[in-house]
Computed example of a mutant assay.
Amino acid sequence: MAICVRHKRCWLCGQPLGKYQVFVIGSMCAVNRISAEPPSHRECALYAVQACPFLTQPKMRRNEVDMPLESTQPAGLMLKRNPGVTLLWTTLRYFPFKAGKGVLFNVGDPERVEWFCEGRPATRAEVLASIDSGYPLLRAQAERDGPDALTELAQMHSKAMELVPS
């Protein structure tokens, strides 16, 4: 990850990134605009949403069996669920920042968004179902953080809803 960030390389193939960077994120990352993984090339991201079992099978669970002993949890609050849809978030800029012992990425403003489900373009209903099922998890965290966090989350949710396909 450090090499990808320091040298602006694709998270999937390791080659240099161009002008645009694409984050492969779930619906709640579209709300909070945070990712635990650095960006990729669009072609690499498209391959991921069409080939990765976790991204193409909404009922798939994360495989945490036989994880290397040196593996660590990603920074931030990871929602351990399959969101059912995946978003390719194309941006010109992103901003890494320290979070605990790790790094997270503010994904910047989108130049383009593409929603996928089961390796194909997602329907509006699929995207809304994913947002509706994940939002209570973010809301519960915001409730613990207080009224200002709830207000900010509501604003972020409203902004994310503008990205839902028609």
Rank of each mutant, 00 (worst) to 15 (best):
C44G: 02
A125K: 14
P96I: 01
A154I: 05
G108P: 04
P96T: 03
P38A: 04
A149P: 02
K19H: 08
E126C: 05
V113H: 07
T123Y: 14
A140G: 13
R112W: 06
M78F: 13
L69S: 12
A140D: 06
C4R: 04
L150Q: 12
P58D: 04
K80E: 06
L79N: 09
V24D: 01
E43K: 03
L138E: 07
D109G: 08
A149Q: 02
A160R: 02
Q57P: 04
L150F: 09
R112G: 06
C52Q: 10
K101C: 08
L153W: 04
P96C: 09
D109A: 11
N106V: 09
T72Y: 14
P110T: 02
E64Q: 12
C44W: 00
L138N: 12
K101D: 06
M161I: 11
K98W: 12
D109T: 08
V24A: 11
P58A: 10
S71K: 07
K98H: 12
I34S: 13
I3L: 13
P74N: 10
P16D: 06
P58T: 00
R81G: 05
R139A: 11
Q141I: 09
L92D: 03
L92W: 11
A51H: 08
L77E: 03
N32Y: 11
V103E: 10
L55H: 02
I3Y: 15
V5M: 15
L55S: 03
I25E: 03
L153C: 07
N82R: 12
T72D: 10
H7Y: 09
K19V: 06
Q21E: 00
Q73W: 09
P16I: 01
R139C: 02
V65G: 12
H157E: 09
C4K: 01
F97I: 00
T91M: 05
P53Y: 10
S130I: 00
R144A: 13
G26I: 06
V65P: 14
Q155V: 13
I34W: 13
P68H: 08
K98F: 12
E143P: 03
P74M: 03
S35N: 02
V103H: 10
L12E: 07
K101Q: 12
A48D: 04
L88V: 00
V31D: 00
K8G: 07
I25D: 02
D148A: 13
A45V: 00
M60W: 05
T56K: 14
S158L: 10
K80S: 13
F116G: 01
A129P: 07
K98M: 14
D148F: 15
P38S: 04
P147I: 11
W11T: 00
R42L: 09
A160Y: 01
M78T: 06
R93S: 10
R33D: 08
R93N: 13
M60K: 10
K19S: 15
E152F: 14
G76I: 01
N63V: 06
A140N: 05
F97R: 11
L104M: 05
G134M: 02
D109M: 15
K59N: 14
L92V: 00
E64H: 15
I131V: 10
V127T: 03
A2C: 08
I34K: 12
G84A: 06
Q21V: 00
E37H: 11
G100I: 05
E64N: 15
A45C: 07
R139G: 05
A129E: 11
A140S: 12
L77C: 13
A30Q: 06
C29P: 01
V31E: 01
I25T: 02
Q21L: 00
A129I: 06
